[in-house]
Every structure is written in C-alpha cells, then in structure tokens.
Amino acid sequence: MSDATGTPCSEDAGTVRLERRGAVAILTLDAPRTRNAVTDPPVLNALVAALEAVGADRSVRALVLTGAGKAFSAGGNIHDIRNRRGMFGGPADQVRNAYRDGVQRIPRAMAALEVPVIAAINGAAYGAGCDLVFMCDLRIAGESARISSNFVKLGLISGDGGLWFLSRVAGPAVAAELAFTGRAVSGAEALALGLVSRVVPDGDLLPAALALAGEIAANPPEAVRMTKRMLQQAGRVDLPTMLDMAAALQGICHAGEESRLAIAAAVGPAPQAPGPKEEK
C-alpha cells in the first residue's frame, strides 16, 4: 500500500494503485490497454492482493474503489473471450475451474472486507466491471458512468456471482430487467433506479467519494465494521437469528472502550462513583 502521498507500493504490479488518505484507502484499477478488465491474471492477482492488504490493515476504516482513465472496468477481456484463450479456453469443466480459481476470487475477497467499500464509477462498468460495482457497499456515479450487466448480449451469464449482488441492490424486478436485456444505464437512470446513491460531475467524483469515505471513517471503526456485518446478513437470516446477532454484537459494543469514549465525547464522561465514606 502506498503512503499518504499516493506513491504506489510493490503489490500494485502496474495494474492497480493502492493509496492512503489518512484512514481511507483508494484502490484504482489502472490497466488502460484493456480498459481495466479484471480477468487478466496480472490485474486479477493485483486486485485480490490489494483487497487482502486492505483487509489485513486495521487502520483502514473505508475503501474507495475506482478506475483510471475513461472506464471503471470493461469487465472481462473481450479479445480473450472471443479467442477462447486463458481462463475462457478449453472444455467446459476446465472453464468452470478457471472461474472458480480465477475471477471468483474477487467476490470472495470483497465479501471478506469488514470496512465499507465505495465504488466511484467513472465511465463504463460493463460485465464483470458491473458486477464489481455491485459488490461494493455504496456507489457514486460520475455523469459519464454507464453500467451494464451485458452478459446475455454475448451469449454468456455472470460467472462471478454478479447477479446475486445485483439482485440484492436492485431488487428482483429491476435486476431481471437489466440482466435479461443487458442494456446500459446512465448515471441518472441508475440513480432513479436506486442503483447509486448520487450522481456528480466527473471532476467531482473522487472528491465526493473521499468525502463520504471520510465521514464514515470519522465514526468508531469497530462499530462500523459490525454494522457492515449486520447489513450483510439482512435478508439472509430470519428475524430471531438477526436479533440474537444484534444482542451479541451490542453486548460487545457496550462493554468496549470504543463506545465509552464516543459517548463521553458526545455527552461528557460518566460521573464517578462515590468512594467509601470515612469513619469518624
């Protein structure tokens, strides 16, 4: 990971840049030759390594994920798909295993992150790039953003679990429309459909994402991590299970130093208990 100046470190491998702005990490896909396609092994390996580095660093409180240049990510390498080479070549069982051992590492690494992830969507986010957008917890789009789950247009399906993430964000009806048509939506339409939380001018995209990340990072970090886990379970478990989880995590919060300090900062420290009376 790079330092506060944004100088890249060794895990970037020339395909991603991982930088720090205080407690916020910025992960930028930077493979201009393929418009930040994530299926090429150098990009895939560097992306997963960067996500794992963020997950291992407890000083990181939020992550912004974006793309360099005019695209967030074109998804899969279309030329490799056409030529059936790399992870797209060979018999069906070989391709299946290539997906499991390859691009499916991305959703597993994203799901393992405890800190909130904000997608700053610049330009095209197609195919696996669209899936990556919906693996994030929050999404801000630039005015030039175009989001498309375009697999059916290529006679394919989402092979990295993208429909699972899309349906959780968009709901079944909107997810079905986007997946069955494969059409691209603009930032404005994505906002109207509830796919992103806001649309900003392209020049304001990264500052807006960093401002949101900073607002998150200002909160007690362990409470934010627990809140993310609770949100991830919403809709997956029944209410009794959710209530049990909430009670257990809330017990940890109440007993912890983080909550004591945060509450003291908000309303003042707790009064001291009176000491034992001295006998006269």
Rank of each mutant, 00 (worst) to 15 (best):
G171Q: 11
T28G: 11
S186E: 02
S158I: 00
L243C: 14
A119P: 07
V48A: 01
T227L: 15
K280S: 14
A74I: 13
A128F: 10
I118C: 08
G102L: 10
R35I: 10
L205E: 14
G75Y: 02
L163Q: 13
H79F: 03
A71D: 11
N150F: 03
S186F: 06
G90S: 05
R168L: 02
A31T: 15
V48G: 00
E143W: 00
L132Y: 09
L163D: 12
A262N: 06
A223Q: 14
S149L: 04
G268W: 00
V24Q: 04
A56T: 02
G69N: 11
G194Y: 03
A173G: 01
L193Y: 09
R105F: 03
P240H: 00
F165D: 15
D3K: 03
N36P: 08
G214N: 14
L191D: 07
R225F: 00
L243H: 04
A179W: 07
L47I: 03
L193S: 03
E52C: 04
A145N: 10
F180S: 14
M110Y: 01
A31I: 02
L249A: 11
A248H: 11
G251A: 01
G171F: 09
P240D: 00
A68M: 06
E11H: 15
T34K: 07
M110V: 06
D12Y: 06
F151C: 02
G251H: 01
P107D: 01
